[in-house]
Design a protein around this nucleic acid. Structure first.
Length: 603
RNA sequence: GGGGGUGUAGUUCAGUCGGUUAGAACGCCGGCCUGUCAAGCCGGAGGUCGCGGGUUCGAGCCCCGUCGCUCCCGCCA
């Protein structure tokens, strides 16, 4: 049952040789006389030819072949006759003249055609084993493999140890909802599937392993998105005796290796950087796509005294915890030609993010000549108009979009509008892949719902050395702590966060203080992750690390919209698997063994 | 939990104002066909219009409910 190679490997160098290939019938063209079949395997296609004059018996056999039948064919590699070469095919210069045909298996008519575009995802996932035969999915998963191997090799060569950590672990506070696994031998108790190997990798640093990595499956029981699955894969790494610079440099070297090996492209290093503050100021989001030339401009000071009440009120706003009001503008060059309908659609769009409206000015001409078309322009003084032009550089033909509200609403709504305009109007410029580091994230954020601070990254992230004193000042408790910066960094690719990490706290006193600021009681901390706190007491080295979202990274590099297209067996938006029908009800006996009873009442 | 989109043949879709027998392409089946590669020509089969209820003389189309898939908000690093 030997085969001489993959279909795609049969080339002109084998002309005159006898070969054997195995694969699926991708298409057949039966002329009554000569029959052509494209035989497909994971490598690609090769045309095999059944000629009645060459092998009448085999030719007769070939009449019965249908799509997706599984064959083994042996024959002579031959240059195609002149005028019949197919330049669209890698193997298009040759064909195999079949002498022997073995029908390894037949196949029913497929539920969808493998070469059809736009087949519904429900059907594709239900028959994923067929969907995965498609060229695109073959390409995606083979590319993903290449990325993973490159990561492994690169990190191995950089002295990293690949170490596995438990999948059955314990629930941690903070973060996402856990997937729980009941313990049979410990009635009433549960494991949690890991949201990430975070605590374990810190323990490995404390244990002296110095450089750890893992391509780790992570689980989070939250609602899904196009770039979010309940289980996903992280390239997780951690290093001892380093600062943020070393971690970022290492991460860059990994990404550069992926570019070189998987994409065959160079990547110019170092990757550009922005602080969180700069990113929010200019782009309104912490993951900006720098291919988009549009920027936000802060007009809060310029228009603080304006007669337009909506703006003036926003500028005067001070939130309960120090969140300011803000006026920002987004200038769209050439945007004066947007229709009223388009503007209405953008107004509705920013409403999704909490904006109460979207003020705009079309610059049909200079303001001095009454050239500004806008529902709000009548409120502005001449000085304000001049200042708006000076601040934005706006020219005739442009449109200005304004946001005025709490800073978080202004930034998010205009930031998202910037992204949407970039997509709608095809504004993205420059290289197809644009990386940027975003650094100096805030350490803490105020959560209004629970009335306490929460960690922006996670509770083990170290503050910036310069800001440490603010944390320790007792009078700071519960006040404006969102101004403290952390040693956290995100790597952003084309406007999507593909990796993030931080330098961790290795000082037990600081870790204790941090937990106190997060409102986690000593007892609770002791119970939930006392093991980490204890470990910090036994000689914890300074350490830090980072994790890449492998699914997102691969999806962006391949230019596919959804990470489901780079995962072999993904789940639907309701976290189900149409192939296996998971999740499912289980036998009551299984539940009894686990000391469980469902409270669910079927409708 | 909320908002938007969508569901018609195996697949992708069309289906007018509510009106007679629900169409097309591809696929499938049969026949013909010796250089195709989107093979070609002739013929044919194939429908619980997601599901349930309602309005109507009459519903793929209107109304109510429900389910699936999908995009987004909330949630989630």
């Amino acid at each position: 049952m030997k085969r001489s190679g993959y279909c795609n490997e049969i080339g002109t160098h084998l002309i005159g040789e006898q070969v054997t290939v195995c694969g699926w019938v991708s298409s057949r063209r039966d002329h009554g006389g000569v029959i052509f079949i494209d035989l497909r395997d994971r490598s690609g296609l090769v045309q095999v030819v059944f000629n009645p004059e060459r092998q009448p018996e085999v030719h007769r056999q070939a009449h019965g072949l249908r799509n997706e039948y599984v064959l083994q064919v042996s024959g002579l590699v031959s240059r195609r006759p002149p005028e019949t070469e197919n330049p669209k095919l890698a193997t298009g210069a040759i064909e195999i003249l079949v002498d022997r045909l073995e029908l390894l298996n037949t196949a029913q008519q497929l539920p969808f055609q493998l070469d059809e575009e736009g087949v519904g995802e429900a059907t594709r996932l239900q028959y994923r084993f067929l969907d995965l035969r498609r060229t695109e999915m073959q390409r995606n998963l083979q590319f993903r493999h290449r990325v993973m191997q490159t990561v492994r090799r690169t990190l191995d060569e950089s002295g990293f140890l690949e170490i596995e950590t438990p999948m059955l672990t314990r629930s941690t506070p903070e973060g996402a909802r856990d997937y729980l696994v009941p313990s049979r031998v410990n009635p009433g108790q549960f494991y949690a599937l890991p949201q990430s190997p975070q605590l374990f990798k810190q323990l490995l640093m404390i244990a002296g392993y110095d450089r750890y990595f893992q391509i780790a499956r992570c689980f989070r029981d939250e609602d899904l998105r196009a770039d979010r699955q309940p289980e996903f894969t992280q390239i997780d790494l951690e290093i001892s005796f380093v600062g943020a610079e070393e971690v970022m440099a290492l991460a860059e070297s990994v990404i550069a290796a992926v570019f070189r090996d998987a994409l065959g492209q160079g990547l110019s290093l170092p990757i550009a950087r922005l602080t969180y503050e700069e990113a929010m100021d200019r782009y309104g989001l912490d993951a900006p796509d720098l291919r988009n030339p549009l920027q936000l401009i802060d007009l809060t000071e310029t228009l603080r005294e304006t007669g337009f009440k909506v703006f003036a009120q926003a500028a005067a706003m001070t939130g309960s915890r120090g969140e300011r009001g803000m006026i920002k503008v987004l200038r769209l060059p050439g945007g004066a030609q947007l229709t009223r309908k388009q503007i209405d659609e953008y107004t509705e769009f920013v409403g999704i993010y909490g904006a109460k409206g979207l003020a705009w000015i079309k610059l049909n001409g200079p303001w001095q000549e009454d050239g500004w078309q806008s529902p709000i322009v009548k409120f502005f003084s001449e000085a304000e108009k001049a200042a708006i032009v000076a601040a934005t550089g706006a020219e005739v033909g442009d449109i200005l979009f304004f946001g005025a509200d709490r800073a978080s609403i202004v930034n998010e709504s205009l930031g998202r509008l910037r992204v949407k305009l970039g997509k709608d109007l095809d504004l993205l410029r420059g290289a197809p892949f644009s990386f940027v580091w975003v650094t100096e994230f805030p350490l803490l954020d105020w959560d209004n719902e629970s009335r306490r601070h929460v960690a922006v990254h996670h509770p083990f992230t170290a503050p910036m050395v310069e800001d440490r004193a603010q944390l320790d000042a007792p009078e700071m408790e519960g006040r404006f702590l969102d101004r403290v910066r952390s040693q956290a960094y995100d790597l952003v690719l084309n406007g999507t966060e593909i990796g993030g990490g931080s330098i961790r706290i290795h000082d037990p006193k600081l870790q204790e203080r941090m937990l106190a600021l997060l409102g986690i009681e000593k007892e609770e901390a002791e119970e939930k992750f006392g093991f980490l706190l204890k470990a910090l007491d036994y000689g914890a080295p300074p350490h830090g690390g980072l994790a890449f979202g492998l699914d997102r990274l691969v999806a962006i590099l391949l230019g596919v919209e959804s990470i489901r297209d780079v995962i072999a067996f993904p789940k639907t938006q309701k976290a189900g698997c149409p192939l296996t029908q998971a999740p499912s009800f289980v036998d009551p006996l299984q539940l009894r063994e686990l000391y469980l009873r469902s409270t669910h009442i079927p409708k």
